[in-house]
């Protein structure tokens, strides 16, 4: 037995070890492992903070006229009389089995509610990023072609608007222009894609515009600055120009290719505020997403619901950053090749 064992293992390359050592697998593994403490900390803080906030779920539910005994009774029914770390532990152990608990307010399964709403927020986030990134690439490239020119100054002005106007105000202006005045798009409401793809598109246009404008502005300014900076400081740009490449070719074929990495990093960094913005935009446009649900849940201090949504938001952020890492690996030959050797 012993010799057979030696004979079979010694010469064969260990596929598993090779797989685990593969850099891409390692990146994914590390990111996912990092997510675990983040999730624990985020949910614990959520539990603790909601517990510290004044008022209780029971009194929020029962309204102003409630008597102390009534509040007490409801708290017992909802197990709110237990110390919060006990409730956190109960919630956590259940969460490990995939059960995020029940809403304190309407007894619906948190997992079911979140899954039901997730696609709305995800499509909002995805479309907004896509629009912001592609818009930023176009605008920043045109701006960087002639820094200080008329077009550049107009674009710079629009992007400074994007960074200074609150999402809330911008959304309402959009609604006033496109819904109230021009009657082109619905002011509120959501149409599921399965009901009507066109209706869905119409109901998403204004929310997506509102979400993407501020991040577009950030992307645009950063990308423009980076393009101009690289154009004036990078030697490979001189090389390209020395070959006789035209202004556009240098910008698009050479500089943009290198600036895209900074943009991708920025997308990863903006994920957090983007997810936060879903709450505002979904509230204004009445979209049934998790951001709006989070606001409602916080209002009632519906801790399982809040935590469930926080978990999902953390996972989205972690996955988005993982996607950024992987995209880097795919796009940047320096990383791609290091990983092969």
């Amino acid at each position: 037995m012993a010799t057979a064992y030696l004979n079979t293992t010694a010469p064969r390359p260990n596929v598993f070890v090779a797989f685990v050592r593969h850099p891409v697998v390692r990146v994914i593994g590390i990111r996912l492992l990092q997510a675990i403490p983040i999730l624990l900390i985020a949910t614990f803080i959520t539990f603790a903070l909601l517990n510290l906030l004044p008022g209780s779920t029971a009194s929020a539910l029962l309204g102003d006229g409630a008597s102390a005994e009534q509040i007490k009774a409801l708290e017992i029914k909802l197990h709110l009389d237990q110390p919060f770390w006990e409730r956190y532990w109960t919630w956590l152990t259940a969460a490990f089995t995939g059960n995020l608990g029940e809403s304190l307010v309407n007894q619906q399964s948190v997992t079911a509610v979140v899954l039901d709403r997730l696609h709305v927020s995800l499509s909002l986030i995805f479309l907004s990023i896509t629009l912001a990134v592609s818009g930023a690439i176009v605008f920043a490239t045109v701006s960087a072609k002639k820094p200080g020119g008329v077009i550049d100054r107009i674009f710079t002005f629009i992007s400074s608007l994007g960074q200074s106007i609150p999402t809330f105000v911008f959304s309402l202006v959009m609604v006033l222009v496109f819904s109230v005045t021009l009657s082109l798009l619905p002011a509120i409401g959501y149409v599921p894609f399965s009901d009507s793809p066109i209706g869905w598109a119409q109901s998403m246009i204004l929310p997506v515009l509102s979400m993407s404008f501020p991040i577009w502005a950030i992307f645009c300014r950063m990308l423009r600055a980076d393009l101009i900076d690289q154009a004036s400081s990078e030697d490979y740009v001189q090389t390209a120009r020395a070959k006789g490449a035209g202004g556009w070719a240098v910008l698009i074929r050479h500089i943009l290719r290198n600036s895209i990495f900074g943009l991708i990093t920025l997308v990863g960094l903006q994920m957090g505020s983007l997810i936060g913005n879903t709450a505002i935009v979904e509230s204004i446009f009445g979209l049934p997403g998790i951001g709006r649900e989070l606001l409602n849940a916080i209002h009632f201090k519906d801790i399982p619901m809040v935590c469930g949504i926080v978990v999902v938001m953390v996972i989205i952020t972690v996955l988005a950053n993982l996607a950024v890492d992987l995209l880097y690996a795919v796009l940047d030959p320096r990383i791609r090749h290091d990983s092969r050797s």
Partner: peptide, 30 residues
């Protein structure tokens, strides 16, 4: 005329090539 009648080589070879482009493509571009 640049790259055709006159060409230039720069000091720092680590920075004067586009890091995201294949060698062949960079030569072929000219």
């Amino acid at each position: 005329r640049r790259g055709k009648d006159m060409a230039m080589i720069f000091q720092d070879p680590t920075r004067s090539l586009n890091p995201t482009m294949k060698i062949g493509t960079q030569i072929a571009e000219n």
